[in-house]
Amino acid sequence: METRLVPYETLNALQKQQLDGLEVNPEQLAYSGDIYCALNSLLVNPNPDAIKGFALLADEVPVAFLLLKRPPCLPHWADEHSATLHALQVDRRQQGRGFGRACLQALPAMAIQVWPRIKALELSVDSDNVAAMGLYLGADWVDSGVAYKGRLGYERRLTLAL
C-alpha cells in the first residue's frame, strides 16, 4: 500500500468527501477533536498562510489528517521559529496499520516545503495520552520536560528539530 502526505487543498472532490467521513475513536475525541472541528479551523482561518491542513492518502484514499500552524496562529507555548502540530487524527477503521507513524515520517519534509525557514516542529500532548506519547517519542520527538495544566490535565511539550 502506497501512502503519501498531501496538502488539503490538493485533494479532489471525492477525496474531500472521503475525508469528511474520517472517524476518531470516542476515547480519542477529547485529545484530537473530530474532523469537523479540524477542517473548520482550517477553512475559516482568515490567514491561510498560518494554518495548513494535510491528509495522509493510502492508495489515494484519505486515512488520516493533521494541521500545522505558524504565526499568528501559534499557541502561547510555541517558539516563533517553529510550526506546531494539531489535530492528528487517524480514521478509527484504519488504526493499528502504521498510518500515524507514516504521517510523522512525512511531516518534516512537508513542513519544510511549506515553510522553508522553520527550525522545528512542536506539539503539546496530554500526559495521560499514552498512545500518542508512545507514537511521538518513537518518531524521535523530544520531551522538553515541561508540563503545564491543559484543557484535560497536564500536557507535555515535545519538539522535533529540523
Rank of each mutant, 00 (worst) to 15 (best):
I112H: 04
M133Y: 00
R157I: 15
V125L: 03
L107D: 00
A120H: 06
Q105N: 11
L29D: 04
W141K: 12
F54H: 09
A109D: 12
F65D: 02
G53R: 03
G96Y: 09
Q28I: 06
L57G: 08
H86D: 07
D34Y: 04
T84H: 03
A13I: 10
V44T: 15
A120W: 02
N40A: 12
P75T: 03
S32M: 03
Q18R: 14
L57V: 11
Q18W: 10
I35W: 02
G21W: 05
W115A: 08
N129I: 05
Y154C: 07
S144P: 05
A87Q: 09
R97K: 15
M1A: 13
I118P: 01
F54K: 04
S82A: 14
V61I: 14
E27H: 13
P116S: 09
K16V: 08
A83K: 04
Q113S: 13
L29A: 11
L123Q: 00
Y136E: 07
I51W: 00
A109H: 02
W115H: 08
L162E: 01
C103I: 13
K69R: 15
E60N: 15
Y148W: 10
A131H: 12
V114Q: 13
T84S: 11
L107S: 01
V44H: 09
L67K: 11
E122Q: 15
G145S: 10
P116L: 12
A139G: 01
E9D: 12
Y8A: 06
Y8W: 15
W77M: 04
L162I: 11
A161M: 09
I118Q: 06
C37Q: 14
P46F: 07
P116W: 03
A38R: 02
